[in-house]
Amino acid sequence: MKRYLLTSIITCVFVFSNAQESIILDTIYANDQKNVALFFPEPIRQGITGSDNFVFTYNRDKEQYFGLLQAKPGKESNLLVINRNGAIFSYIVRYKEQLSKLNYFVPSASSIGNEKSVSVVPTVSKEEKSFDKSDYYLSACKYLVNRKLNSINLRERYQGIVLSIEHIVFDAEELYFVIQIKNTSTLDYNLNFLDLSVQTRQKGKKKSLQRSYQKPLFVHNRPTRIAENETVRMVYVLPKFSLSNDRRAVLELNEANGERNLKLKVSHRYINNPK
């Protein structure tokens, strides 16, 4: 029954595909030791694999933007995902013991077609677009802040306060900064601001620094106070940018009514080569 359903869905894909030509499918690797996360531009309405040795899980009660893929050793298969708006995404899935990629941010352009033929494109207001994007950011941030991934180990400490950037994750148009603040002191820490800026070193006899503030598109879980012996993790979503060799990013943490201020310098190589 499962194979018949999958065959029927695939038939619909070819009927309603936007491109009337053969499509080369991307390959996603998974195993039974780790979860591989797929983030989609719209909430997932349906996801199905063609073989029992692959499992794709997603929230069936409340539509969300991401699903998790796991695999057991066996022959390759395929994964078909349909978003809430009818967009169809199809992939070849294979088992691999060692995985080099655990997160896939799927752009709308990678859809192979739509399950419905659309003759009229509805007008969407800027407010509605912004709301939809915020939902996508929220789902991605919740996933990243609750996952333990290999840290890039960027940190700065001062008087019992430890500021660190654990991950910088790249999406099609954004960079996700996973930030951690740890208070190992005996005093609560009241946050005044936590800002990210880009500094450019000016050459010449009179060396100086020019700084430009990078405004986040979305901020998740930023606290106003960090109690003693408390650790807080948050995510800043910023528009994608790159840095030349003479520029660097600086994450600045400032204490309200206090002097425990920290500046964490981030080399251009971390910004230009995110995970």
Rank of each mutant, 00 (worst) to 15 (best):
D171R: 04
R201T: 14
S197H: 12
R3F: 07
T27I: 11
N221K: 08
L217V: 05
S130H: 07
N245T: 13
D32T: 01
N103I: 12
F66A: 06
I152A: 07
K265Q: 12
F40H: 04
Q180L: 03
N85Y: 06
S130K: 10
D195A: 09
K116S: 08
F193D: 14
K148V: 08
Q199M: 08
D195E: 15
N83T: 15
V232P: 00
V81L: 10
K72T: 09
R157D: 09
N272V: 08
I161P: 00
E21Y: 07
I9V: 11
S151C: 01
H220T: 01
G86H: 09
P216C: 05
L196H: 04
L102Q: 09
E259D: 14
V36D: 03
Q199I: 14
V237C: 12
H220M: 03
E228T: 04
Y270T: 05
S100W: 02
L196Q: 03
D61E: 13
F16T: 14
M234N: 02
Q159L: 11
A227S: 09
S77W: 00
S242V: 09
E166T: 05
S134Q: 14
N190H: 14
V219P: 01
K207Q: 15
S139H: 10
T11K: 13
E259S: 14
T27C: 07
V266M: 10
V198D: 08
E21I: 10
S77A: 15
R94E: 15
S8V: 04
Y189F: 14
G113C: 07
N114W: 08
K62L: 10
Y158F: 13
E42V: 02
L196T: 08
L102Y: 12
N254M: 13
L80N: 04
P107D: 11
L5K: 11
Q210N: 13
E156M: 05
T123W: 05
L79N: 00
Q180I: 02
T200A: 11
S117H: 06
A227C: 02
A227P: 00
G160V: 01
I24R: 11
D26A: 12
G74E: 11
F89M: 05
I165R: 00
V106S: 02
F105I: 13
S77T: 00
E21S: 13
I44T: 02
N53P: 03
I165S: 01
L251H: 07
L38K: 03
R211V: 13
L6N: 07
R3D: 13
T224D: 10
A249E: 07
E166A: 06
V15N: 09
N78A: 00
F241P: 08
T27M: 03
H268D: 15
N59R: 06
S130T: 10
Y213W: 08
R155A: 07
L191G: 03
S8K: 10
Y270C: 07
Y236Q: 03
I112M: 04
K116D: 07
S244Y: 09
L175V: 04
L5F: 11
T27Q: 10
Y4N: 12
S90P: 00
V106N: 04
F89K: 01
